[in-house]
Amino acid sequence: MEPAAVAEAEERGANRLYVVLTRAVSRLDVVHARPLPFCRGLQPAPDQGHPER
């Protein structure tokens, strides 16, 4: 599922996306085609330019 689509799907979509992204236990890779929506935890890592894991 496209992260931006989750955020846009409902009024509290950004909150739902945050919950989904913060429940990973050991590793989370975010694959996306569209720009990531503003959400805590989706800022690029300082040295890699990839979303934080």
Rank of each mutant, 00 (worst) to 15 (best):
M1E: 09
M1C: 08
E2I: 05
E2G: 03
A4M: 10
A4G: 01
A4W: 06
A4F: 05
A5I: 02
A7P: 01
A7R: 01
E8A: 15
E8V: 00
E8F: 05
A9W: 02
A9Q: 08
E10Q: 15
E11P: 02
E11R: 10
G13N: 06
N15C: 01
L17V: 04
L17G: 07
Y18E: 13
Y18C: 07
V19L: 03
V19C: 02
V20A: 11
L21A: 12
L21V: 03
L21G: 08
T22V: 00
T22L: 01
R23Y: 05
R23V: 00
A24M: 04
V25D: 07
S26I: 04
R27H: 15
R27W: 13
L28C: 14
L28N: 07
D29G: 02
V31R: 08
H32F: 15
H32R: 05
A33L: 14
R34P: 00
R34K: 12
R34Q: 13
R34G: 01
P35E: 00
L36K: 02
F38W: 07
C39R: 07
G41V: 08
G41A: 12
G41E: 09
L42A: 11
Q43S: 12
A45G: 04
P46V: 10
D47E: 08
D47M: 06
Q48H: 03
Q48A: 15
G49Y: 02
H50E: 09
H50A: 12
H50K: 06
P51Y: 11
P51V: 14
E52Q: 14
R53D: 15
R53S: 11
R53M: 12
